[in-house]
Simulated assay, not measured.
Amino acid sequence: MLDLTVGGWVLAVIAAVAVGLAKGGLAMVGMISVPMLSLVMSPVQAAGLMLPVYVVSDVGGLLAFRHHFDRRVLATALPGALAGIGIGWAAAHVVPVDGVTFIVGAVGLIFALNALIRPHLSAQKRRPSPARGTLWGLLSGYTSFVSHAGAPPWQVYVQPLRLPALIYAGTTTWFFAICNWVKLIPYAALGQLNPAALATAAVLTPAALASVWIGLRLVRIIPEALFYKLITWGLLAVSLRLIWQALA
């Protein structure tokens, strides 16, 4: 098991809860997990620790949305996503830890600023496009590999498609579940799924699974706009801290 301080364990549990809430319907919340853990460990270690938590939490989402997803959207985005994961694997030994820290912080910062400055994407409905799907799928796959932060590029592609809410949630769940299962191969090859990380992930998984249920309930109680505004400001603060840490 990883040797974490009390503060590190607190952040790890919060990160696991964020993953569970994301799988319970509060999709963007999961983005804060790796940036938050990167405050107390390397982002590479943080990503390896959280992947098993994501994979186990995905099971509940796949069961819930097994009949609700858009095959056309997945067909246009998954090839690019798999290529992005491959690029992340190939560049894993080239990009230094500080570089990964900066990328994680930059991705979070860009998304947070975009969410604050442009709270609504274009209202014009689009159709699934192999070109756009490949581009945004590639970026989503790469950022997902680096820090499980593939949601912003994915949202840029899928949100303008104006899918029905249930189909949107199900397609998103299937897309990232497939990406997470594929990431197990390069993460294991890179040594990120070591026994200590797996043991720690096993301790955190119950909190994530319980939070899936909590997420399903919170979606119906908390005003979505207020909740995401708080998460966005939190992500902004953590991302700025990571960028400063990388540059320092």
Rank of each mutant, 00 (worst) to 15 (best):
S140E: 13
L230G: 12
C179H: 09
S211M: 02
A246D: 00
K229W: 04
P128Q: 05
I221G: 11
W181T: 15
I231E: 09
A149K: 07
G133I: 13
P130C: 14
Q159L: 10
Y187K: 00
L216N: 12
Y228M: 00
V203I: 15
S129Q: 06
S140I: 13
A210M: 09
Y187R: 00
R162D: 14
V156Q: 10
G234K: 14
Q159E: 15
L230A: 15
A177M: 01
A188I: 02
Q245D: 07
A169H: 13
Q159D: 07
Q192I: 06
A165I: 13
L161K: 01
G137L: 12
T205I: 09
W233I: 15
L138T: 15
L218V: 15
W174Q: 00
A208K: 01
R217L: 14
W213P: 06
L184Y: 06
A197Y: 04
Q245M: 10
Q155F: 11
W244S: 12
L230N: 05
P128V: 03
G170E: 11
L135F: 14
G191D: 02
R127T: 14
I243W: 09
G133T: 11
Y157W: 09
V212N: 06
I214Y: 09
H148F: 04
T173Y: 03
L209Q: 03
S211H: 02
T171N: 00
R162L: 14
G150V: 11
G191K: 08
V203H: 04
T232K: 08
W174Y: 08
A199V: 13
W244T: 10
W213N: 04
G150H: 08
Q124G: 14
L190H: 09
V156R: 15
T205V: 08
S147K: 05
Q245K: 13
I185W: 00
T232R: 05
I178Y: 09
L163F: 01
K229E: 05
T143G: 06
R126L: 10
L184S: 03
L242Q: 04
F175D: 03
L184R: 00
L242V: 04
L161C: 01
T143F: 10
W174R: 04
Y157P: 02
T200V: 08
Y157T: 03
K183P: 04
K183W: 05
A196P: 02
L161Q: 01
A189R: 06
S239M: 13
R132A: 15
Y157Q: 08
G234S: 15
L235N: 11
V212W: 04
L184D: 00
R217M: 12
A151T: 13
L135D: 11
G170M: 10
L216Y: 12
T173I: 06
I185F: 06
V182A: 08
I167H: 01
L204E: 07
V212Y: 07
L226I: 13
L190P: 07
R126T: 12
W213R: 11
V146E: 09
L236S: 11
S140H: 14
Y142G: 10
A201R: 08
I167Q: 06
A169K: 09
H148Y: 05
R162K: 15
Q124D: 15
F175C: 02
W213E: 05
A207Q: 03
L236W: 13
A207F: 04
I178L: 08
F176G: 00
W174K: 02
V158M: 04
A165K: 10
I214T: 07
E224N: 01
T172V: 11
S147V: 10
W213S: 05
I214V: 08
I167W: 03
H148W: 07
Q124H: 15
L209K: 01
I221S: 15
K183M: 07
